[in-house]
Design a protein around this nucleic acid. Structure first.
Length: 562
RNA sequence: CGGGGUGUAGCGUAGUUUGGCUAGCGCGCCUGAUUUGGGAUCAGGAGGUCGCAGGUUCAAAUCCUGUCACCCCGACCA
């Protein structure tokens, strides 16, 4: 490919609406062009990167026995009504009517299609286990696209689905995909990707891992242990809090005029915040109020609380009786569903609201004063917390980009969609399923985010748009051009992926464009080099810089890229 | 959906508070010359209904009303 014919503009100035560096570089380097919020056209360089990533994924999927299929992008809503997700999923599922008024959906994920495709094949235990995957465009009407290709509304995804007759087999397959994912990320040039346990979200199911690339611009918060290999998504990390030792005391109602926040109360009564019981009021979709009680110095993680409650919850918009805003406490609170966080367990002298304007209790002992209360974990983990695995105060929070995920779905889809197989004895059962996803362009953008310098991306060889970038300085001099043209032909003939810059332009422009394209190996032909009968061969990551005889350049480069 | 911000040439922007514009600058683009190892220099040139629609005014990029779009924060997120 000749660089002067490469469609797309490369330019110097950072686009004003790019917030993260990889996004700015991809726009500046002529990789993408925005069409609408979260919708992009892809120029040749990024498409070539995406195709290489897809090929790596394809090879690793095939290696573990998954087979490639293709599901439709658009599906009748009826298929999604089978699983219950037509009603269950929100506005991110794009819906439309066809010309006959039939409700249709745009595929955001393909569990339904996978069950639909395989449920006849899967009617006998003898066919199990099996797995299918596809690499295809997904449509999701994201509430807020952001950060270039990190969160978009249309993107290419590899999604795989496996089917099993028992949980041991499912676990084994899950592990195989897990290992395949590690290989995929390593081959793509980012072996540092880590997996974390995650909340299983709308997909349902029992266990899930997200594959995370640590980056400050990541949307997800991870909990990592500095002392052991404990890693979890913030929503899935168990909070361990030390029991605060306190002197026993009797329940005592005290006046706390005007003290509506836990800070006010503790200051007024001269108490430590970790000896207070804070009430956070939520409501369900139907308006029913629920109260989460948690230690005063700890915050609620709403996702964890949502899982404990087992329903959507929202911060209360208004506080209704019997709750008293600012003075809500567990003592004598009837008719409202309440949840206690683990952090309150074992504390014998707490301060809490008295459910009466202007009054709090001190000396609260939950077990003594409220009967047999049940404790849950819905507390937010913070830096320095205790690791649930090794017990040290060694947890730290980090940001990560989710580049892949794997889910144990169980029988959620097979049951709802009536997929069954017969066992040896003729009994009918619902197969168990897992699903596995990797976002292709997000992966490319993430790699750009962690493999770059001030001048452009530094693409790993395995996914680089080209292997070699040939630059001819002073292409207006015939002798120089002749050598460069010759090398270009030789490299092409040798099957090496090469981009050739033979423009008559200043060196600065040519080098800057090369930096933006981020091709790993660079070959420079110039009058200066020609005088010595050599070409200069460098690498984008600056680890290589050598003068090589013109006749030996091809062999030299071939060695570097294989 | 809530909060904030911005719309001026392909990109980046000045001008808007206080109306006087025939809209300025840099990059990029076209022509020519001189250059050529890190985004060259000089000369000449093309490119704008100032997001859109109304309104106020002798006069609107600038003031008013409406509307659309995009960006950021939040909600949401397999």
């Amino acid at each position: 490919m000749k660089l002067d014919k490469l469609v797309g503009e490369r330019f110097k100035e950072r686009p004003a609406d790019c917030v993260i560096d990889s996004h700015a570089l991809m726009v500046r380097g002529g990789y993408i062009k925005q069409v609408g919020p979260g919708i992009y056209s892809t120029y040749t360089p990024l498409l070539r990167i995406a195709r290489k990533i897809e090929q790596i994924i394809r090879e690793e999927m095939d290696r573990i026995g998954a087979q490639e299929v293709l599901f439709p992008v658009i599906m009748p809503a009826a298929l999604w009504e089978e699983s219950g997700r037509y009603a269950g999923v929100g506005a991110e599922l794009m819906r439309f009517e066809d010309r006959n008024g039939v409700n249709m959906v745009m595929g955001m994920t393909h569990e339904e299609a996978a069950v639909h495709l395989t449920r006849e094949f899967g009617n006998s235990y003898q066919r199990y286990p099996f797995s299918v995957y596809q690499i295809q465009t997904k449509i999701r009407d994201e509430a807020r696209p952001r950060a270039g290709l990190i969160r978009v509304r249309e993107f290419i995804m590899k999604d795989a689905y496996s089917f099993h007759t028992n949980s041991e087999d499912l676990d084994a397959c899950y592990d195989r995909f897990y290992e395949a994912y590690e290989k995929i990320f390593a081959r793509a040039g980012i072996p540092e990707v880590v997996s974390v346990k995650s909340d299983s979200g709308m997909m349902g199911g029992s266990m899930a891992h997200e594959f995370m690339l640590l980056a400050d611009v990541g949307e997800d918060t991870l909990v990592l242990c500095k002392e052991c290999d404990f890693r979890a998504n913030l929503e899935a990390a168990a909070k361990v809090s030390e029991v605060v030792i306190s002197e026993k005391a009797g329940l005592d109602k005290v006046a706390t005029p005007g003290c509506k926040t836990i800070e006010d109360v503790c200051k007024f009564l001269n108490l430590a915040e970790n000896l207070s019981c804070k009430a956070i009021i939520y409501q369900k979709a139907d308006g029913e109020q629920i109260v989460a009680f948690i230690r005063g110095d700890i915050e609620v993680n709403e996702t964890k609380l949502r899982n404990v409650v087992g329903a959507e919850i929202y911060p209360a918009t208004e506080v209704k009786m019997p709750l008293v805003a600012g003075y809500c406490g567990p003592v004598g609170l009837d008719g409202v569903k309440v949840f206690y966080d683990n952090s309150l367990k074992g504390i014998e002298n707490l301060c809490c609201g008295a459910n009466e304007e202007g009054f709090h209790y001190t000396g609260l002992n939950l077990e003594r004063d409220c009967g047999a209360v049940e404790f849950f974990d819905f507390a937010k983990v913070v830096d320095g917390d205790i690791c649930p695995n090794c017990g040290k105060n060694s947890l730290e929070l980090a940001r990560g980009i989710e580049v892949g995920n794997i889910f144990k779905l169980g029988d959620k889809y097979s049951k709802s969609m009536g997929m069954q197989y017969q066992d040896e004895a003729g009994g009918l059962h619902f197969p168990l399923m897992c699903s596995y996803g990797i976002g292709v362009e997000r992966l490319a953008a993430s790699i750009c985010e962690v493999r770059r310098d001030d001048f452009g991306p530094i693409w790993p060889l395995a996914i680089a748009p080209w292997q070699v970038h040939l630059t001819c300085l002073r292409a207006d001099e015939e002798a120089v051009r002749a050598v460069a043209d010759g090398l270009y032909k030789d490299f092409l003939a040798a099957g090496i992926e090469i981009i050739y810059d033979d423009r008559v332009a200043s060196t600065g422009v040519m080098f800057s464009d090369a930096d933006l394209l981020g091709v790993p190996i660079r070959v420079i032909v110039s009058p200066r080099n020609l005088k010595q009968g050599v070409v200069e061969i460098t690498s984008r990551d600056k680890s290589l810089k050598e003068s090589v005889e013109i006749g030996k350049a091809l062999e030299f480069v071939r060695e570097k890229i294989t």
